[in-house]
């Protein structure tokens, strides 16, 4: 029995035979319905393009103010990092660390790590420590929360609208595009293309 011809469901452990999928098809567990694997057209190229664009947008979103506020002639600008700095200064380092990690560091590590793994793969090569890097970015995935961060910004805008004039900055628009890029990246990406390349049998 060749082990790589089978897959065990991650949610119920049922062993099932791997089958080739039609384009954009998906395989679900026969017992519990969990998604086992899926086929994505041009996954490597599309993911790579989206991840690189994501990194660019990410830099813009973090370099410019995303909101400025005006109350009776006084203006205050905010960047993504400024709230984090306030937490650190006001004796809440854990909050600062939590927002820094989930809002900035993990999403960036994911995009950069994906590019680091996929770019050499495009030229039939493997980058140094591909398996370890890929394992890391897969495990960080639930902790990157750019889209939740955006929802938080939008809620704050509504909250503040009553007491001040809010002007959206360049970073906010960059952030909106970034959310779509991050979502499109994970929709286009099929992790199996990396694992297959790492198979010891080959």
């Amino acid at each position: 029995m060749r082990l790589d011809a089978y897959i065990a469901c991650p949610h119920c452990d049922l062993l099932q035979r791997r089958q080739p999928l039609p384009p954009e098809g998906l395989a679900v567990c026969a017992r519990c319905g969990t998604l086992l694997y899926r086929h994505r057209r041009n996954s490597l190229d599309r993911t790579l393009a989206l991840a690189v664009s994501g990194i660019i947008l990410f830099v813009i979103a973090n370099s410019y103010p995303f909101l400025s506020l005006n109350i009776e002639g006084q203006t205050q600008e905010t960047r993504l990092a400024s709230g984090i700095l306030v937490f650190f200064r006001q004796g809440m380092p854990w909050m600062g660390a939590l927002v820094l990690a989930t809002g900035i560091v993990f999403p960036l590590v994911e995009l950069v790590g994906l590019t680091y793994v996929l770019l050499p793969l495009k030229f039939e090569r493997l980058s140094w420590k591909t398996a370890a890097v890929f394992r890391l970015i897969r495990s960080l995935q639930p902790w990157g929360m750019t889209e939740v961060f955006l929802l938080g910004i939008l809620v704050s805008m509504v909250k503040l609208a009553g007491m001040a004039t809010i002007v959206p900055g360049i970073a906010l628009y960059a952030f909106l595009v970034l959310i779509f890029l991050v979502a499109a990246t994970s929709a286009a990406f099929n992790p199996e293309i990396v694992w297959e390349r790492l198979s010891p049998q080959k």
Partner: peptide, 27 residues
């Protein structure tokens, strides 16, 4: 993950409202 929304709202508020007695938010 969606529970984190309020954490981000507070992050944005403490960053934006730093205008002393006029308007200020502390966590």
């Amino acid at each position: 993950r969606w529970s984190m929304v309020d954490v981000y709202v507070v992050t944005v508020m403490v960053a934006l409202l730093k205008l002393g007695a006029l308007a200020n938010v502390d966590a």
